[in-house]
């Protein structure tokens, strides 16, 4: 059955190497967008966030390329189709998660249901992997990112945000009795953070503080709850994370076991993300949200989820 092709070994190796190169180029093209996002991320966090366009350091033709790549329906097409697809991370309590009957619930879910009811568009909820959210949006798989989505300069390059609808803080939580009340108190401590979260940006805005951490940098976990579990078993000394989730978590576990420091790593705002080509849709939603703030229905939903915080 075998043919003897060993003499052609060298040629084969060359072909193989070429193939490898081709596949890696193809794949990097597909991943290009995410890498860009990461790069801008780092740039932004290095130079203390704030000014709207943090990461314009990347050349403009790259931005052009990104804009060309956006796919997905327009507002008219969405209306014609009859429904809008909202992407959410169904592991993010209390913003969007599943109850024991497996229904999608949460503050953002309730808010979105009301908003789209008023906008007269049927809402479809699509759970996504959070690390893929911008890709999901800009390939038209979903039409909205709405799930505790922090507005950052890096993300603003890829999506358009509504006006902020909720303020969140990056708080420091330790076990009760740790005596950590200020950022400086974290010196020599193991600090756990969710990877690829805005908490990292927030912490890195204080490079002097990060340097004093045990190991000189935070310990990263896939999710906030894993970071908090690490804190509970004593491998980590502190967690920096989203106030909304951390408070939800410690309420489940018993508030008295934990201590929330007086100082935090700053405020941030949640917005709703749309494709850059969907400006009219964004305006529509912003208007509905404004009305809901005026007539008190926003507060009603807020109080349902955050009343005793």
């Amino acid at each position: 059955m075998k043919t003897f092709q060993n003499k052609r070994g060298l040629r084969k190796t060359c072909i193989l190497l070429a193939l490898l190169l081709i596949t890696s180029v193809v794949m990097s093209a597909c991943w290009g967008k995410d890498k860009d996002a990461e790069d801008t991320y780092k740039e932004v966090s290095g130079g203390v966030a704030e000014n709207g366009d943090g990461g314009t350091g990347t050349s403009s033709d790259e931005t052009d390329e990104k804009e060309q790549k956006i796919m997905g329906p327009t507002l008219d097409e969405i209306k014609e189709r009859g429904y809008i697809i909202m992407g959410l991370d169904d592991t993010f309590a209390p913003m969007g998660f599943r109850d024991k009957q497996n229904n999608l619930v949460g503050f953002d879910v309730d808010l979105a249901k009301e908003v789209f009811k008023r906008a007269e568009i049927e809402l479809k909820l699509q759970p996504i992997d959070w690390s893929m959210k911008e890709t999901e949006l800009n390939t038209g798989k979903i039409d909205v990112i709405w799930n505790g989505y922090t507005i950052t300069p890096g993300r603003k390059e890829q999506v358009d945000f509504t006006k902020p609808y909720l303020t969140n803080k990056q708080i420091i939580v330790t076990m009760a009795g740790s005596g950590v009340d200020k950022r400086e108190d974290l010196a020599g401590k193991k600090v756990a953070i969710q990877s690829e979260s805005s908490a990292i940006d927030a912490v890195e805005a204080y490079p002097d503080v990060v340097k004093t951490f045990d190991g000189g940098k935070p310990v990263l976990f896939a999710t906030n709850d894993k970071a908090l579990m690490d804190l509970e078993v004593g491998r980590s000394d502190a967690v920096v994370g989203d106030e909304v989730y951390v408070r939800y978590y410690i309420k489940q576990k018993g508030k008295e076991k934990y201590k929330i420091a007086k100082e935090d790593f700053g405020d941030e705002e949640y917005g709703i993300g749309f494709r850059k080509t969907n400006g009219d849709l964004l305006k529509l939603i912003d208007d509905v949200l404004d009305k809901m703030r005026e007539d008190g229905s926003y507060d009603e939903i807020y109080n349902k989820w955050f009343s005793d915080n």
Binding site: G87, D90, R98, D129, E136, T223, Q252
Partner: peptide, 23 residues
């Protein structure tokens, strides 16, 4: 398959784990 948003067994576990703060 979680990466493309499909809720399989392990993800269902992660969701419950996150919600109930339990392993």
């Amino acid at each position: 398959v979680y990466i493309i948003g499909l809720g399989e067994l392990l993800r269902a576990g992660e969701i419950a784990s996150n919600r109930d703060a339990s392993l």
